[in-house]
Design a protein around this nucleic acid. Structure first.
Lengths: 110, 110
DNA sequence: ACGGTAACCTTGTATAGCAAGACTTGCAAT
DNA sequence: ATTGCAAGTCTTGCTATACAAGGTTACCGT
């Protein structure tokens, strides 16, 4: 029951950069991102993703492009911007450092 | 400028269990915890810690004990409870799994 | 025409960390 | 004594994020 709560809080602030990491491998559209993140258990529902994408667009981290259907309904593809790439690099530094501290604490005194 | 913001969000949901990890090595009082966490860059100020300790007490994760001064002003020592120990174990599982996913994403496709 | 489904988006809510500072207590100079 | 300083605890107001639940639009097969 509380495993969910733990996950939820852990995801805060990580999700944004996981999206950037995925986009750094190439453009993706909303549901495609949602599926990739769900498979990795990094989101619990699309309700987290779309508001996040909107924020990221406002902050200039991603650039949306509308692709009107070759088949199926139109999709909105997102590409990472230069600014987004920089932010991803910064995050990687911060994450690596923090994760090392947490790992050390969890392992306890040698 | 935004490195702070990244850290802030990353800490959410981690801090609580870092406190438990520290307490699993023995009782500690407020400022002692604050110093340990600050040294590891896991908090930015005591303003995060005291409300957290209060929440953790309400949730039965820690048990406070008032120690009236042997020397210096009285301190409130916190000990981890059995429930706290269980929660720490659960967190460790969740954290390990999530951290692995994030690391994999940051390293990108092999 | 009609149901299904892919894709996208919105609303409301709970929660966690933070900055800044208030308050209390003991100790040390003067 | 009195003043000042530092250790220790706690409070207030704020912002931001993930989530559940549901709603909307467009395409497709039958």
């Amino acid at each position: 029951m509380s495993e969910e709560r733990i996950s939820t809080n852990l995801r805060k602030g990580v999700l944004e950069y996981c999206v950037l990491a995925l986009l750094s491998q190439g453009e993706k559209y909303g549901l495609e991102l949602a599926d990739a993140l769900t498979a990795r258990e990094l989101i619990a529902s699309e309700g987290s993703l779309y508001p996040l994408l909107a924020r990221m667009r406002e902050n200039g981290l991603v650039e949306p492009r509308r692709e009107t259907s070759d088949s199926g309904r139109p999709r909105r593809y997102y590409a990472i911007t230069e600014h987004g790439t920089e932010q991803l690099a910064t995050f990687t530094r911060v994450w690596t450092s923090l994760a090392a501290q947490v790992d050390a604490l969890l392992e306890g005194p040698r």
